[in-house]
């Protein structure tokens, strides 16, 4: 029985809607499932670290206000694969796509 869907977790705290939408579009374009959860703490390192470790695929994104970070299961907390403060739309797409590419074992954009 499958308990969890094999999806990328996106943990957010007081996120910007457009930012979140672009990030999700990045993931969708790569054809990977994702789930978004609203959290009540705002530390970006914890958000992305937890998302990566609780995702079955080991890839997670944390969004805290205007900052976004991509983390991978197994990488120490606070060390991001990719990080942006106030990202552009393209950067949001890119970080979304990269979170999927980690799972697909493809070169990052």
């Amino acid at each position: 029985m499958i308990v969890k869907r094999p999806s990328i977790f996106v943990y957010t705290n007081r996120h910007d809607d457009i930012m979140l939408k672009e990030i999700c579009a990045g993931i969708e374009e790569e054809g990977v499932f994702f789930e978004v959860f609203e959290k009540d703490f705002q530390d970006l390192a914890t958000l992305s670290f937890d998302a990566a470790n609780e995702s079955m695929m080991g890839s997670g994104i944390g969004i805290s206000r205007g900052s976004v970070a991509l983390a991978m299961k197994g990488v120490q907390k606070g060390k991001f694969v990719e990080y942006y403060d106030k990202p552009t739309h393209e950067e949001c797409r890119k970080i979304g796509a990269n979170s999927a590419r980690i799972i697909k074992k493809m070169p990052l954009k």
């Binding site: 197994g74 990488v75 694969v81 990719e82 590419r101 980690i102 070169p107 990052l108």
Partner: peptide, 28 residues
Amino acid sequence: VESLFHMRLENGQMTFVEDSIDPRFYGR
């Protein structure tokens, strides 16, 4: 580079690294 922690060499051997590999090399 197959993950942030290991790569497969052309002779089929695997090597693991202590500290994670720079993401720029991931999958390449």
